[in-house]
């Protein structure tokens, strides 16, 4: 049987992941956020959440992670799954009927992330609001949510010692070259002109480079690339 591990309760665990979820809720206007991943070696579900402690307690005590459709169906999707698609699955009601009394909305969405080693992560967000508001919120934040989900997942994976040894960012020549020009202070437009490629191509390589380096901003990506010796300081 799978165990559910609240990573924030591990002694000496740093709280940056829960803080990341808090920040995410603040900036993207959600009530709650949670992240879960299945550890294929230990067979455990590991996660973080900023739900009320009594909901986490209830969820853990009842072992709801064993039937929670947001985890078990969510992981098989490649695109974000609105929970309204899961309402008719066998266990949705048994998991979420009690949720409102713990201040948790059953209006939510799960963003699945697939990692390079068959690993996967699930970032879920909820918000208690009307349908129309929910739809417009989704439209507004979907891109940011995708980026946040991959960022969270990659950082959790890299924080794990076993995974960290496997993780070597494989930057392509183009990605290194573009990051090098960024390090030297060139704008995306300049770089496009220098390399005779469209600024859109510059951008797609930059996004990919950021993702591989586990960075949210280009400045962060340059910093990490420099520290890994992939790019010379500008």
């Amino acid at each position: 049987m799978m165990d559910l591990i609240d990573l924030s309760k591990i002694p000496d665990a740093d709280d940056r992941f829960v803080r990341f979820l808090d920040d995410l809720c603040q900036t993207l206007e959600f009530d709650h956020a949670s992240y879960a991943t299945l550890n294929p070696v230990l067979g455990t579900v590991q996660g973080f959440a900023n739900y009320r402690p009594d909901w986490i307690e209830h969820y853990t005590r009842k072992g709801l992670h064993r039937i929670d459709p947001t985890l078990h169906y969510g992981r098989k999707s490649i695109s974000p799954v609105d929970w309204d698609r899961l309402e008719r699955t066998p266990h949705f009601r048994s998991v979420f009927d009690d949720a409102p009394q713990f201040g948790v909305s059953d209006r939510g969405m799960t963003v699945p992330v697939r990692g390079p080693y068959g690993d996967f992560g699930l970032l879920s967000v909820t918000r208690d609001c009307k349908q129309q508001e929910w739809e417009s919120l989704k439209k507004k934040v979907m891109g940011n949510l995708q980026v946040a989900a991959v960022h969270m997942h990659d950082n959790v994976m890299q924080s794990d010692l076993a995974m960290a040894t496997l993780h070597r960012p494989a930057l392509s020549g183009r990605e290194c070259e573009i990051l090098q020009w960024v390090a030297e202070g060139k704008s995306q437009q300049d770089i496009g002109d220098i390399l005779s490629i469209s600024h859109r191509t510059v951008e797609v390589h930059l996004r990919s480079g950021r993702s591989k380096l586990g960075a949210l901003t280009t400045a962060q990506a340059v910093g990490r690339a420099v520290s890994l010796g992939l790019v010379k300081p500008g």
Binding site: R114, P116, G118, V150, S172, V204, S208, S211, K212
Partner: peptide, 22 residues
């Protein structure tokens, strides 16, 4: 971000370069 054809099968097209990941 996960396994896909350009990373696992069609890497020849990329002239030995690692694929995009985003």
């Amino acid at each position: 971000t996960g396994p896909h054809m350009l990373s696992d099968v069609f890497h020849e097209i990329l002239d030995g370069e690692p694929p995009l990941r985003s």
